[in-house]
């Protein structure tokens, strides 16, 4: 990581969100929660039934990831991001319920981008396939819910210097669009 990298804590405070503009590289320390396809479906089902959630979403960060199994002596296996767009259908609702930040890979739908601006949130990307590298930043892992889902269970990760890049900021900035416009040729 180079000098222009911001060190931030998670949960991310609203005044820090203001500093996270598309393209900013960050190292995250603190707490993040893993949740992917099946866990999202269960969270939404719980919201539909007005039941309590496995963790309070307010101000939190969700990491779209399902780790490989931990070897003896390790807290986790490899744990890179999965494709975020599969969660797009659920995300505006979670942001409205208080979720502040998401980490994944790939671009988001227009509805999610609008919800990020409206709810003053942020979407970050981690490098897909850099799963072994990312595992080094995970210091502690606790399964919070849905243990029966195996790799898809919700895990509370304690992280130190987890590397990510701001993709969609609270002001409508979109790294995918900006990056592509800068390097596109012809047509």
């Amino acid at each position: 990581m180079e000098e222009d990298t911001l060190h931030i804590n998670s949960p991310i405070e609203p005044d820090i969100i203001d500093k996270l503009t598309a393209g900013t590289r960050v190292l995250i320390s603190g707490i993040i929660y893993t949740a992917r396809d099946a866990a999202h479906k269960r969270i939404i089902d719980s919201l539909d039934r007005a039941e309590g959630l496995p963790f309070d979403l307010a101000g939190q960060t969700i990491y779209y990831a399902g780790p490989s199994p931990a070897r003896p002596g390790q807290v986790i296996g490899s744990v890179g991001p999965t494709t975020s767009s599969r969660m797009d259908v659920f995300t505006p609702r979670l942001l409205a319920a208080g979720l502040r930040a998401m980490i994944g890979k790939g671009n988001r739908s227009a509805a999610v981008r609008a919800a990020i601006v409206q709810c003053h949130g942020v979407y970050l990307v981690a490098v897909g396939g850099a799963a072994a590298l990312i595992a080094r930043s995970i210091k502690q892992v606790d399964v919070v819910a849905y243990d029966d889902l195996g790799p898809e269970a919700i895990r509370r990760l304690t992280v130190e210097n987890f590397p990510a890049i701001v993709a969609n900021d609270a002001f409508g900035g979109d790294l995918f669009e900006q990056g592509k416009a800068e390097y596109r040729r012809g047509r």
Binding site: L175, Q178, K180, A181
Partner: peptide
């Protein structure tokens, strides 16, 4: 590679 998508879609050749 002229699309500009780049590594992980963040822009590039």
């Amino acid at each position: 590679n002229d699309l500009g998508i780049g590594p992980m879609g963040l822009g590039g050749r």
